[in-house]
Design a protein around this nucleic acid. Structure first.
Length: 405
DNA sequence: AAACCGGGGGC
DNA sequence: GCCCCAGGTTT
């Protein structure tokens, strides 16, 4: 079922909108003062006035076309504004239009993205751009359902793009506004809970003005980023303070409700560094592979490291590589242990040197997924954070003439 | 070092 | 409805 279909089904009302809103309001604890239209009017007025004085000057705000807003929204989904800025500028120089993006080389794209993480999102953007070219004649669609149908774009992102770039009257709900709206309304459930989430979407829609919805949505997110912060909100500076049901009740510590997160999971992983002297040159070259489409880090390059199966020992990792290459692999010294935390995993990555009889690997090495690559060429391949750390490690080893074995 | 952040998609 | 994604910042 597509999102568009699901949304349409949701729209098929068995109750009127008002009845439904009342039914849901009874379930979700909040302060009823925020239901008054006069309250909403005051909030809008104060928020707009505040935003006029406090809005940050950001590159995607100067010329908010759907494409530019889209790129900024995807980058901002995972990273803070300060980090995004240089990436955004580089991206826009390289791919000023959605057509340029559609024509981009995927490895170049991922190399530009390297460091932002969550690489599936770049691939989704690339695929979406191609569809914009094929299905919308290279013009980014401005119809909500058409935008929502693009890969990597959900209800939030579609609403953000079209409200900000086209001033369509569409609500948004993301991390900042979940918290801000929860506090304004003293909605005490955990905002990600299904019932609370539905309620907040509805709240967001009711709060929207008739015009300048994009400005309103940006202002709501901006105040969440600058004033109504998760810890120690700056209520003294907040223009909504007099209207805020949480501030009135002194509940800033307990609203929004805490999101229970999955526990950390310790994991041990192994990477194998196979090197050989580059033919007719001083430098070394290393065995790397491009990860297949369905794997973790799809499209990125990596040193031999089992990602499809879990391995508990370096020997198991070596046996995995033997299966991949069809030739015996000998494990050498441990070069380093890299500690790396990502999502719920705390990973100890043991990096070992290893060797094979390279004559016997020739058949597999014709496979475009496996390649011997010179140290300085590794710089041009898109890699995960840990992969890049291994490259740095090898650069240091070469510089200090430390033998790998 | 631990805790926190977070939207979209696949099933 | 639940789990996955594979990285950075704050405390």
């Amino acid at each position: 079922m597509t999102d568009a279909v699901r949304r349409n089904q949701k729209r098929k009302p068995q109750q009127t909108t008002v009845q439904k809103a009342q039914a849901e309001s009874q379930d979700v604890p909040h302060d009823s003062r925020c239901q008054a239209s006069s309250w909403r009017r005051d909030v809008r007025r104060r928020l707009f006035a505040w935003f006029e004085d406090h809005a940050r000057v950001l590159p995607w705000r100067s010329e908010p076309t759907p494409y530019r807003v889209w790129v900024s929204e995807i980058m901002l989904q995972q990273t803070q504004v300060a980090t995004v800025l240089p990436y955004y500028e580089r991206w826009m120089r390289q791919y000023p239009t959605v057509v340029d993006l559609a024509n981009a080389d995927e490895a170049d794209l991922m190399r530009i993205w390297e460091g932002l993480g969550y690489y599936r999102r770049v691939r989704s953007m690339h695929a979406a751009a191609k569809r914009v070219v094929q299905e919308h004649e290279g013009k980014f669609p401005t119809d909500f359902d058409a935008v929502l149908a693009l890969p990597g774009i959900g209800r939030y992102t579609a609403g953000a793009i079209l409200s900000i770039a086209c001033d369509q009257r569409l609500p948004i709900l993301e991390g900042n506004t979940q918290r801000v709206f929860s506090r304004w309304a003293a909605m005490s459930l955990t905002p990600t809970e299904t019932k609370a989430n539905k309620w907040l979407w509805q709240f967001s829609e009711q709060l929207l003005p008739q015009h300048e919805c994009g400005t309103f949505n940006q202002a709501a997110m901006e105040i969440g980023a600058l004033v109504c912060t998760p810890k120690n909100p700056k209520c003294d500076e907040c223009p909504i303070r007099q209207l805020c049901c949480t501030a009135a009740a002194g509940l800033q510590e307990s609203i929004p409700g805490k999101i229970t997160r999955v526990k950390y999971e310790d994991r041990m992983e192994f990477a194998l560094v196979l090197s050989r002297k580059a033919r007719g040159q001083e430098c070394q070259e290393y065995l790397v592979r491009q990860l297949p489409n369905d794997a973790r880090w799809a499209g990125l390059w990596d040193f031999p490291r089992p990602t499809e199966v879990e391995t508990k020992t370096v020997d198991a990792a070596a046996r995995w590589l033997e299966g991949e290459l069809g030739t015996p692999v000998r494990v050498g010294a441990r070069l380093k242990t890299i500690r790396h935390a990502v999502t719920k995993f705390r990973i100890q990555l043991h990096v070992h040197s290893a060797s094979v009889n390279s004559k016997q690997t020739r058949s597999k090495l014709r496979d475009p997924l496996w390649r011997w690559v010179r140290q300085d060429d590794l710089a041009n391949l898109p890699m995960s954070v840990t992969g890049r750390k291994i490259v740095h490690l090898l650069a240091q080893s070469e510089q200090s003439f430390l033998p790998l074995e």
